[in-house]
């Protein structure tokens, strides 16, 4: 540590920045590998089938995704219903 850095204050050590970034990216990559692909496509397919019985929907208008937030997961289902006022 040089005299100058003592005088002008210390910048954040880059090694700790590296560690934080890696913790985030590794956790995220593990999350997407162990969840997503398993049951989501099937769930999405079945949702489309059920909803189509009642309302005509475009398969592309149903979005299913899993989001990880701290220690719980949120299953988000987004359905855009057709505009049938006319």
């Amino acid at each position: 540590m040089s005299l100058l850095s003592l005088l002008f204050g210390e910048k954040k050590k880059t090694a700790s920045i590296a560690k934080e970034r890696l913790q985030l990216i590794i956790a995220r990559e593990h999350g997407s590998a162990s969840h997503g692909p398993d049951f989501l496509p099937a769930l999405q397919r079945e949702l489309i089938e059920v909803i189509s019985k009642y309302v005509p929907v475009n398969p592309d208008d149903i979005k299913v995704q899993l989001e990880k937030q701290d220690n719980y997961e949120v299953l988000e289902v987004n359905i855009v219903l057709p505009d049938n006022r006319d």
């Binding site: 540590m1 050590k13 880059t14 090694a15 700790s16 590296a18 560690k19 890696l22 913790q23 590794i26």
Partner: peptide, 16 residues
């Protein structure tokens, strides 16, 4: 460089 905070320590890498 680890001592100077410029490089991940072996403990950091192992923990990750």
């Amino acid at each position: 460089r680890v001592d100077e905070g410029e490089m991940l320590s072996y403990k950091d890498v192992q923990e990750l």
